[in-house]
C-alpha cells in the first residue's frame, strides 16, 4: 500500500541513522500483518478513507519515531522535531548574519587578517547564545503545555490534526536530484555552448564583456595582473569540461538526473579558480599600467585596493570549500541511507 510506504518513509526520516533500517523493517512487518488481517476480515482491500483512519490511529510519523528515541526531559517528543528544525535554521541564520557582519566590519573599518583571526573566537559564543535562546524558548513552551494545557491549545502539542494524505510522496528514482526534461537538458547545453563562445571572444574583443568601458580600461592607469589571465583560462577550461560532460549525457540518454559524481566534480572544479586567485604573487590583482602611469589618481591607494580584493578572495575560498565539503557529506550520507534501506 502506497500510503503505508509513505508513512514508513516519513517515520524513517525522524529515526536515528544507525537504527533506521532495522526499526522500519520491523515496523513494516508488523503493520503489513495488521493490514492483511484487516483486509481478510473485510474480504476486500481497505478504501483510501479506511487506510487514512488506520494510519491516523497509529499516530503521526514524528510521534511514532519519537517513541523509539531516548527520553528527552527538557523538550517532549511531540515538539522535539519542530525544535530541532528551528534550532538548525536559527544556527544557520545566526552564522550567516555573523559572517556578513564580520566581513562588512573588516572592509569598512579596514581591519587585517589578525583582526579576522580574533573575530573568529567570538563565533562559538554566537552559536552557544543561539542554541540557549531557542532551547530556552521551547523548554518554556513545553513546560506551559504540560502544566497549563488551557493556555496552549492541544493541537499545538499533540499532532492529532495530522493527515496521512499530507505524507511526502515516494521517490520514484532513488538517485538524488531534480529530474529534468530532454528539452531542458538541450537548452542548458546550448546555453553552455553560447557561454563558451562568448568567453573565447573576450580576449580579442573585450567590448563583449565591458561594453564601451573596454576602451576606457585600455587607457586606464591600472590594469589586471597576469593571475587574472590565468583565472580566466581556468574558467574557460571548467566550462568546456562541463559542456563535454553534459554533451555525453545527452548522447548516452542520461540527462534526466545529474549523477552524483558529476555534481561532486563540478563543485570540486569550482574550487580551483578561486584557490588559484589565492596564489596571486604578492596578493596583487591590479597593478599600475606603465603606459598610462601619469593618469594615476593621486588619492588612489592601490595597495589597499588589492588588500580588499584578497580579503574577498579568502572569504570566497572559504565559502566554496564549505560548499564542497557539504556536498561530499550529503552524497556520503545519501549513499549510506540507501545502503541501509530495508530489502537491500
Amino acid at each position: 500500500m502506497e500510503l503505508l510506504d509513505r508513512y514508513l518513509l516519513a517515520v524513517r526520516k525522524h529515526l536515528p541513522l544507525a537504527r533506521q533500517a532495522d526499526i522500519v523493517a520491523e515496523l513494516r512487518a508488523n503493520l503489513e500483518a495488521q493490514l492483511e488481517e484487516q483486509e481478510s476480515e473485510l474480504g476486500r482491500p481497505l478504501t483510501e478513507g479506511e487506510a487514512i483512519d488506520w494510519l491516523k490511529r497509529l499516530g503521526s510519523p514524528t510521534e511514532m519515531a519519537a517513541k523509539y528515541q531516548p527520553l528527552r526531559y527538557l523538550i517532549g517528543p511531540t515538539i522535539f522535531p519542530t525544535y530541532w528544525m528551528i534550532l538548525r535554521l536559527a544556527v544557520l541564520w545566526a552564522s550567516v548574519a555573523w559572517a556578513v557582519a564580520t566581513v562588512v566590519r573588516m572592509i569598512t573599518e579596514g581591519h587585517g587578517p589578525e583582526w579576522l583571526a580574533q573575530a573568529l573566537w567570538s563565533y562559538p559564543g554566537v552559536l552557544a547564545a543561539t542554541v540557549a535562546w531557542v532551547t530556552g524558548a521551547f523548554a518554556a513552551f513545553e513546560y506551559v503545555a504540560v502544566h497549563y494545557p488551557n493556555i496552549i491549545p492541544g493541537n499545538l502539542t499533540h499532532s492529532s490534526a495530522w493527515s496521512p494524505t499530507s505524507l511526502p510522496r515516494l521517490e520514484k528514482d532513488d538517485r538524488p536530484g531534480k529530474r529534468r526534461t530532454f528539452a531542458t537538458a538541450v537548452a542548458e547545453f546550448v546555453a553552455e555552448f553560447a557561454l563558451i563562445i562568448w568567453l573565447l571572444l573576450i580576449p580579442r574583443y573585450p567590448v563583449v564583456l565591458m561594453g564601451p568601458g573596454a576602451i576606457y580600461l585600455e587607457h586606464s592607469a591600472i590594469r589586471l595582473t597576469h593571475i587574472s589571465v590565468e583565472f580566466f583560462w581556468v574558467i574557460v577550461v571548467f566550462n568546456v569540461v562541463q559542456l563535454a560532460w553534459h554533451g555525453y549525457n545527452l548522447l548516452s540518454g542520461n540527462w534526466a538526473v545529474k549523477g552524483v559524481l558529476q555534481k561532486l566534480a563540478a563543485k570540486a572544479m569550482g574550487v580551483v579558480p578561486v584557490l588559484l586567485l589565492l596564489t596571486a604573487p604578492g596578493h596583487v590583482f591590479l597593478e599600475v599600467n606603465p603606459d598610462e602611469a601619469a593618469r594615476m589618481p593621486a588619492d588612489l591607494d592601490l595597495a589597499m585596493l588589492n588588500h580588499y580584493l584578497f580579503t574577498s578572495v579568502i572569504v570566497l575560498s572559504f565559502i566554496v570549500t564549505i560548499q564542497l565539503v557539504l556536498e561530499i557529506w550529503k552524497v556520503g550520507m545519501g549513499g549510506y541511507r540507501r545502503g541501509m534501506a530495508p530489502g537491500r
Partner: peptide, 27 residues
C-alpha cells in the same frame, strides 16, 4: 511472538496497547 501477534494476544486478554507504545517498548 513477533510484534503484531504479541499485540493481538494482549488485546484478546483485555490489555489493548498502541503500536507506538508496544514496538518501542520491545526494543
Amino acid at each position: 511472538h513477533y510484534g503484531y501477534t504479541l499485540r493481538k494476544a494482549l488485546t484478546e486478554r483485555g490489555l489493548a496497547i498502541d503500536e507506538s507504545t508496544l514496538y518501542p517498548l520491545l526494543r
